[in-house]
Simulated assay, not measured.
Amino acid sequence: MSAIQRNSGTAGAVTNPIRVMVVDDSVVIRGLVGRWIDEEPNLAVVASHRNGRLAVEDVIRSNPDVVILDIEMPDMDGLTALPLLLEKKRDLVVVVASTLTRRNAEISLKALSLGAADYVPKPENNSGVTTSVDFRRELVDKVVNLGQRARSRAAGRSGTGGIAMPTAGVRMPMATSRPAEPAPARSKSASFTIRSYSMVKPRILAIGSSTGGPQALNTLFGEIGSAIGQVPVVITQHMPPTFTAILAEHLSKSAGRQAAEGKDGEVLQPGRIYVAPGGRHMVLAKQGGDVVIRLQDGPPINFCKPAVDPLFKTVVDIYGNATLAVVLTGMGSDGAEGVSAIGRAGGSVIAQDEESSVVWGMPGAAAHTGMCSDVLPLPEIGRKVSRVLLGGRP
């Protein structure tokens, strides 16, 4: 009996769940992840394969919405299989799963540039996978959110209403997960309260991002140009350790500026890009006449570590109405409280729009605070940031 048939007979299950393919060379992980997926009433496993070649050969027949793709596999690895899967199925969502080695982090970021929607850091061994509540929660959250987003876009292109699905950015509850996070309703016709930009020239650029963020950040810095030489840039991207250091290296190439993980006590300098290191909250503090980075090892905030809110709140405490912030694509609502604080202080915030976001959770929550000065498509954000940083009219 298929997973679809099993789930359709479950009380409270949806009749058309998000279809998931699991690709991993470990039979233990395939079985475990498959069970987690099938226990979710809005998800169903439709195929399970031990290598990329089998997945590519089967993707049309099994017709998944989401593929969970391991990196290291025999015969055909995940990076080789990824473009072949996407070539065969245009709307396919691929979530890469890899352990936290530098090599795998490099490969995972390469996979994002090739079209993978997101990644999930995988514990180093099968025992760790079996006992990790965080891995299960993050994996299921991303499959649900990204699967919903893909179906919504497909329904929009076809001109049909599609199936009734929960709002993108809302996390579906599961037995071992945190409570569902509230997020704004998605609506292309929604009207936002837009505030005027600050009349004060920005003295800092602060950015928050999550799912889809690495690609969005590279696009943003490719468009900003020389204007970022005017101010320091601080970034919180939801990422685990190792990944953030490699992300900073990539951003350095995109921006043509020095980018690195922020270090505790480091003095901010104009023209430099500071990325919050995975597993630590990055905030700012005054030290004499300087502004310095402080790294904190407290509990997760908004279920994230690093989190955007603590960075934004300390940025505005120091820079006030000379703050320019950007909220890019990501799940959840991290950053919304910081956006509200920036708006109350008279600073300026730009949020990415829904259509260009991989998931419109964080930027949607920012837009719905009523404290943003613009809600823009990703290709327009860099040029707008450049004008504002140079003191021109927005």
Rank of each mutant, 00 (worst) to 15 (best):
L324M: 09
P83Q: 11
V292R: 11
G212N: 03
N218Q: 14
R153S: 14
M174R: 04
T369F: 00
V46Y: 08
P299D: 15
S340P: 00
D25Q: 02
P270G: 05
G338Q: 06
P394A: 15
G335H: 08
E380V: 03
V120I: 15
L268P: 00
G288L: 15
R178W: 13
R195G: 07
I4S: 03
G330Q: 10
N126H: 07
S48R: 05
S26G: 03
I71A: 04
S209N: 00
L109D: 09
L85N: 08
R178A: 12
G265Y: 07
L328P: 01
W360Q: 01
V316N: 08
R387T: 15
T219P: 01
L82F: 05
D77Q: 01
N42Q: 14
G147R: 02
H281I: 10
L54S: 14
S2I: 13
T244C: 04
L376H: 03
S98T: 04
A116R: 04
L251Q: 01
N321Y: 08
G128V: 01
P202G: 12
T193H: 15
I29K: 07
Q352N: 11
I29F: 10
G347V: 08
L114P: 03
G288C: 08
G332H: 00
D24K: 03
A13F: 12
D70T: 12
T101C: 12
A105V: 01
Y319T: 04
E181S: 13
M174I: 14
I207Y: 04
D91H: 15
A11F: 09
G343V: 00
D58G: 06
S127D: 15
L100I: 08
N321V: 11
M172D: 09
S386E: 07
L220A: 02
A336K: 01
V388E: 09
A55M: 10
D134W: 08
H281W: 09
L79H: 10
R280D: 00
M199P: 10
M1E: 07
G332D: 04
E181V: 15
G298E: 11
P306T: 12
N218V: 13
G391D: 14
I207V: 13
D309G: 01
R137D: 11
T236G: 06
T101D: 13
S113M: 09
A183M: 12
G222I: 15
M282A: 00
S254E: 13
M331Q: 07
I224K: 02
R383D: 06
H250F: 06
V283L: 03
R61F: 09
G335W: 03
I163S: 11
G265P: 02
L251N: 02
L251R: 04
D264I: 07
S177G: 15
V359W: 12
R6H: 10
I224R: 04
S26H: 06
I163C: 05
D25G: 00
A111V: 00
H250P: 02
V27P: 00
Q5M: 15
V133A: 06
Q148N: 13
P173F: 10
S210I: 00
R137N: 12
D264L: 13
T176L: 10
D309S: 09
A322D: 13
R149E: 10
R294F: 12
E249Q: 14
A365H: 03
R61N: 12
R53G: 14
Y119C: 08
I228F: 02
Q269D: 09
A260R: 07
G289A: 12
M174S: 15
K89I: 15
Q269W: 08
R280C: 05
V375D: 06
V96P: 02
V308T: 03
Q296V: 14
A164R: 14
